[in-house]
Structures are given as C-alpha cells and as structure tokens.
Write a protein that binds this DNA or RNA. Structure first.
Lengths: 214, 214
DNA sequence: TATTGGTGGATACACCGTACGGTAGCGCGG
DNA sequence: CCGCGCTACCGTACGGTGTATCCACCAATA
C-alpha cells in the first residue's frame, strides 16, 4: 500500500483536527505516515496544494446532503452542513474564503447552491445570481469564522467565569471601565448566552430572505 | 529616537502592504528599522501581538469616519471604511475574523456600530443587538475576504482573458466541460463583470435591511 | 574607584518548506 | 542472457522562521 493523495489528505486532516493548522507540517504528516518528508512531494506539488486537497475532502462531506426539491430547503441544508463541517474541522474555517475553492467537490456544492438559488423567483438573470451567491457565501464564511474563533477563545480561556475574568478580564474590564465603550460593555456584561446554532439559523434565514427578496 | 511600538507597527505595515503577510517576518522588520531582531521583543510580546498591533492601527483609520446622527448612515459609513481599509491593506482581510479584535480602536469602531445599530427601531433588547451585530459583521468579513481573494487571483493570473484561460483554464474548463456544473459554468462564462463596489453596496443594504427588519 | 543596572547585540536552538543528488529495482531491446 | 534506461524511493542540505539565552558595554551611583 504505497501511499496516495487520499491517505496523505486523511493523515493531514487527522493532525489538523488534533493540533490546528499551525501544528500541521509536512514533516509531521510524513512521520505520521512513516515515510520521509520528501515522499509527499511525489503526490502533492506544494503545501498549499495539500491544503486544497484537505479542503476538498471536507467539501465532499458537505456535498452529501440531500437535495430537496424545495430550493430554500436545499440552501439551508447546505449552509448548515457547511457550519457543521467547520465545527468538526476548525481549521476549515481558517481556509474559508482564503483562496478560491476549485476542487471537484467544492464545485459540486457551489453548483448545488447556485442551482437552488437560481430557482428562487426573485433571482432572474445571471447578475442577480452572482449577487445573491456573493451575499450568501459572504455571510456564511463570516458567520462561521466568527463562531469558530469565539469557540476557540472560549476554550483557551476556559468557559467558567473566573478563568475568563482572569485572562481577558484585566485588560478588557479596564478598557470597559473607561466608559468609552458603553454599548460594548452592555453587550459583554448582560449579553444573553444565546444558543450558537439558533443564532446562526436566525441570521441565515434573515440574510436569505433579504437576498431572495422575501 | 529609540524605537517604539508605533514605529514597529508602521514598519510592519509597510512591509505587509508591499509583500503580504507571508513576506513579513520579525527579522525583516528589524532590518527595515536598522536594529537586531531581538530588539523588537522589548516592545512586543509576540509575533501575534505585533499583528494585533497592526490591526489596531488600521482600525484607527476606520474609526475616523464621521458619525452621522442617522444610525443607518453611520453603519454604512463604517462598513465602507472597513472595506476601503481592507483594499488598501490586503493583509488586513487575512486577519479579519481570525481572532477577537480587542485593541482600543477596534473597540471604538465596535462601539460605534453597536451604538448605531441599537438605535434602529427593530433592535429592542440586547439579544436583538447581538444577533444584528453578528449578522452584519459576519457579512462584512465574508464579503471583504471574498473580494480580496478575488482581486488577488485576478492579479496573479492577469486580468486579460488570454492569461486567465492559460492559467486556470486548463483545469477549470476541463472541469466545466464535464457538464456536471452547468450553473457554475453559466456564471463563469456569461457572468457579467459587475462593479465590485456596487455589488458590495447592494448586498450590504440588503443584509442591513434584513437585520433591522426593513 | 568599584559596583550595579539596564540596554543593545550576537549567538543558538528547534523547526519549517522544499531543491537536489543518489540509488535500487524493474521492464525492455539487443 | 546481458545491459540499458526509466521510474519510484530516499536522505541530506539550504535558507528561512520565531524566539530564549547569554554577553558586552556603558552610565550612574555608592
């Protein structure tokens, strides 16, 4: 079993899931596979091509969602699947929007969303479709990125109030006590702990309604 | 003139503007300033703290926009200023949404947008505000990131049709000729060349309308 | 004058991506 | 059967990175 792009991508994804993109290196992947670092370059041109490979593997999982005949349901399903995938593979959100995603599976989900959106009555010509796709994808990558970084900082500081106050507290509370940021302070202090998925869902339908002229 | 956080940040920004984030290194900044690399650590804890510093300098320029009494105009102005800044400093878009932006100027523009949004009649309680901010910021970082990467690939391949066909063509056209991505193909082939700023503006108002219940 | 404290510099370490030269096996023409 | 070229594997080496640590100097003080 001589090695293959698939195996390399799988090992890379394992490592990235465990230690993040910063903890991912050609050498570590090679060690994980029990070969010399240079072997990978027989299957992959670059480190960045390897990242593209990993990204497309994730897109493959996203593309597995069912296609409903209702265009709106299809779009919602794809968006939620993308969010789910990003939460399972946080490094995915780091790559989201950083480069054009042109792998076959990425194109497949692009095709699916574009086709679904174009079935909306308010999307008439190609220009409408371009704009709608742009707004939707923009929101998608932004919202996902946001949620992932929030989750990361929450994890690094610890969820409990005490640890949070101890880590970001000294600086942030001092900042907020200056009184220059009253609204932000209000948000931080008595901001409700709203459910992330529910928020995502809510904002997604809002944007989708706006885009398709609801 | 012994060196300072401001000078370091300015030099770093110059280098990042010229050669991107990948072309930015502690050693190069030090060389630009005519000092040894280790000197920078007397003023900055980390490379990542230095990035935070750079980001906040950009936020300072964004925060300079006038505050209108009309809340909607304020939000629009901030959004456009952010986009403008990201186009002037493309590396900024790489850092957008990647970590919490807690610098004083970042907090200032956060405060301004939050305050403006909370003056919308449809934003009643803190929960509404959180959701609205989330959707707006999400769209903002996603759309900006998208536009910057588009501009980068356009620049790297060359704007003219021939170079584009030559670089991405072989792979992409082969992909599209499989017939598996008809909608994407239509988008690529006879997709109008719409003005980027106009598209941004359009989608921004769309999202803003949705968020504030227009 | 002797000591101390702080400031700038150089060196060193661990790690990174990857260019490059070499070598062993294997199929094929003579 | 022999030799040749080609392909697939391998290790080493180079130039770069962030940063910890030690060291020399120089000013001010006791």
């Amino acid at each position: 079993m001589p090695l293959s792009r698939e195996k390399i991508a799988a090992a890379a994804i394992r490592l990235a899931d465990a230690h993040g993109l910063d903890g991912l290196s050609i050498r570590k992947i090679a060690k994980e596979l029990g070969v010399g670092p240079m072997r990978l370059y027989d299957y992959v041109l670059n480190r960045s091509e390897l990242l593209d490979l990993m990204v497309d593997v994730v897109y493959a999982r996203i593309a597995e969602v069912d296609q409903h005949q209702e265009w709106r349901a299809t779009v919602l399903a794809i968006a939620h699947a993308t969010r789910r995938a990003a939460l399972d593979h946080e490094w995915f959100s780091d790559l989201l929007g950083a480069r054009p995603h042109l792998g076959p599976h990425a194109l497949a989900v692009g095709e699916a969303t574009a086709a679904a959106l174009s079935r909306s009555p308010r999307v008439r010509d190609v220009g409408d479709l371009q704009r709608a796709l742009g707004a939707l994808n923009g929101f998608l990558v932004g919202a996902i990125r946001r949620e992932v970084t929030e989750r990361r900082t929450a994890r690094s500081t610890g969820t409990d109030e005490a640890a949070w106050q101890a880590s970001l507290g000294p600086y942030l509370t001092r900042m907020l006590e200056t009184g220059r940021y009253p609204t932000v302070a209000r948000l931080v202090i008595d901001g409700a702990h709203l459910d992330a998925e529910e928020t995502f869902s809510h904002n997604l339908t809002t944007v989708l309604d706006g885009v398709t002229g609801g």
